[in-house]
Amino acid sequence: MTNKGKKILVILAAFLVLVSVMMLIAPKHNYFAVINNVVEVKNGVAAPNKFKMPLTVNTAGNYTFTADWWRETDIPGFVTGLIVTDESGKVYYNVTGGTLLSDSIPMKLEKGKYTFSFETLGSHEAFEKYAGEHFKDSDMGDIDKDYFHDGTWEMKYKVSINQYMKGAYAIGMAGGTVFGILLIALVVVLSRKENAPAKRYDERQVAAQGKAYKYGFITMSVCLVTLVLSLTMKISIPAETGLLIMLCFLCGGAVTVTNLIWDDAYFRMDENRPMWIVFFSLLSVLNLGIGISQIVRHEIISEGVLTLRGSMNLICGVFMTYILAVILIKSIKDRNED
């Protein structure tokens, strides 16, 4: 291993130790509950009208409340109001929405029982009455009268109280990014052959890359235009929009990578292919493993819709496996030609 490789390995190990220590000292007090309700609205009256969910906080500290009854399709024709109170009746969090995913600001909570009180509002009048009782005029949003209509909806209400750590999300994102960069840097350094030429790609490879990127860009553009048209024409696709956008990018990426591999312009001249094949295999197995576990735990679909968060690992695993398959097919083709 080169000196550069050893340095990166040491930095990576130190980083992993630092992350492990941070995970040990990080707060872990999170409380959550889920309730499934079939809500029927008939003549502007929703049933069940009210229901409650208790959650107990075992350790005092700074927390945020999360309310989630988000859905992209089959939007309910009623609005749900949520109020979180402690045992003395003090209101901590107050929110309404037909479909909602919302976090409160961080607040100090004492040890004790907190009640999540839901109210379903089947008409504009009921909504106005509720808003008038629970919101100041300045905080009160309005909902169009046409929003409310009769029907039956299977609702899934998820609530949680999460211990708050200032900047935790940013630290997590930055940490993940740094880890990814270090890992790729290590693989790049390890995959360089000894006595490699100074040039990374020769002139034919650079020309082939231009062609591959062009085809990838065209494919991605066509996919995105198709997606935008589908959304504009309100064609129902049982997947989150974020996931569909990601699939468009991956389609473009798949076309680019296929062209690059097929024209021998993917790997640099000085590159050790087996090293990359091992790296891709590990990534494939890791992502497919997580993806399959998400399928088993029914996390991939929510409210009949394929979710981005639930299916990202599976899709990345399939993409990596596809790259591996193209590399192997190309290797077999080259061997037969030689």
């Binding site: 030429p197 100074a198 040039k199 020769d202 002139e203 034919r204 490879q205 021998d264 001249m269």
Partner: peptide
């Protein structure tokens, strides 16, 4: 190795699949 390109590029030139630049 001697001209500083990949083996596949020499193969492509010999097969007539690639027209090299004057420098190559």
């Amino acid at each position: 190795d001697k001209v500083g390109v990949s083996r596949q590029t020499i193969n492509a030139i010999e097969k007539g699949d690639y027209n090299p630049t004057i420098n190559l």
